[in-house]
Simulated assay, not measured.
Amino acid sequence: MSSDRPDETPAVNRRAAIGTGAAMLGGAALGAGLTAAAACAEPARTELPSAGSIDANLNKSAHLFHLTAAEPDRYDGGTLQGAHEQNFPVLAGQNGAAYFVRLEPGGVREPHWHPTAWELNYHISGSAKWTVMGTHPDGSYHNDVFEAHAGDLVFAPQGFFHYFENARADAPLELLIVFNTSAPETSDDIGILAALNSIPREVTATVLGIPVSVLDGIPTEIKPVVITKRH
């Protein structure tokens, strides 16, 4: 599968291309280690500046950002436009960032989780199929599968495994996503295939109870995708 990330995206990142087989295998392989991965991941956010520095920044920085006019990151299945501390300096130290996401018909947001941030997803238009999975106090997994529509709000807790895709074949899906981190979204995101490729294939095969040869078709590259498309 060819790379569909923008040229300006750093090569070392947290995401890789996904396919139906990778998603199915990743859900099983990652389930047992989800909480541990979130707990052990090194925080992506830098130390907060002093209150005085934050106040000074608020006084000198622009408070307006034209989000949907920003140059988008373009992918096979849609586009991503973000406002964070690197391109909207007033956000520095504020623990906040926002993204406008557009998925074309067939578009899929790579299954992933954020080790140090939660997210609120406001559905502007279209319909989305969602899965949010996390652990609960009794030691069980809670796998919440649902469909969201225009006007709906979806919360993905910090460290919870989640993904969404465009549920319609005749219209795009548009969302506004707000994170409680000022860093770029790429600094706090672990994708399913990159996670799979951090595990030796024989270990993954043992966990799934399948021959190692079954995994031969899974891509081995670790590269950002963010958004892909069903083919």
Rank of each mutant, 00 (worst) to 15 (best):
A17T: 08
D144R: 12
W113Q: 04
G21R: 14
A183Y: 00
G19C: 10
Y99I: 03
S213C: 08
P200D: 11
H63T: 15
I124M: 09
V101N: 00
S50N: 04
D144S: 11
G52Y: 08
G96I: 14
A98C: 15
V154F: 06
L25Q: 05
E85R: 15
V225W: 02
P219Q: 08
G107K: 01
P115E: 02
N59E: 14
P72M: 09
R14P: 00
G209I: 08
Y163R: 09
L80Q: 02
I54L: 13
E85I: 06
L196P: 00
F88N: 00
H123K: 05
A16G: 15
V225H: 03
A92H: 13
I222Y: 04
F164C: 01
E147H: 05
K129R: 14
V226Q: 02
Q86H: 13
P10M: 07
W118F: 14
N87R: 07
Q94K: 12
P111E: 03
L103E: 00
F160W: 13
A150G: 12
L215R: 02
I177H: 00
M133L: 10
I190V: 13
R201H: 12
F160C: 11
G19T: 15
E119H: 03
R15Y: 08
S140L: 11
A205T: 07
K229R: 15
V90L: 13
Q86C: 12
A44Y: 07
K223S: 14
L30T: 03
E104S: 11
E42P: 00
V12L: 13
T68N: 11
A16D: 03
A167K: 02
P72S: 08
A92T: 15
I210Q: 06
I177R: 01
A28E: 12
V145E: 12
D144W: 12
R15G: 12
P184S: 06
V178W: 01
T116V: 08
S213N: 10
L64Y: 11
T220I: 08
F88A: 07
A205S: 08
K60Q: 14
T186G: 15
W113I: 04
L173V: 03
G26Y: 01
I199K: 05
L67W: 04
L175F: 01
L175C: 08
S187P: 00
W113C: 05
S127A: 15
H114Y: 05
T135Y: 06
S2Q: 14
T68A: 11
H231Q: 14
R109A: 06
P200F: 10
H149S: 10
L48G: 11
G31K: 09
T135A: 13
E165M: 11
T46E: 15
I177P: 00
I222H: 05
H66F: 12
D216V: 08
D138F: 02
G106Y: 03
N121V: 12
A169E: 13
S213L: 12
V132C: 07
V12D: 12
T135R: 11
L173F: 06
L196I: 10
L91M: 09
A150L: 03
T9M: 15
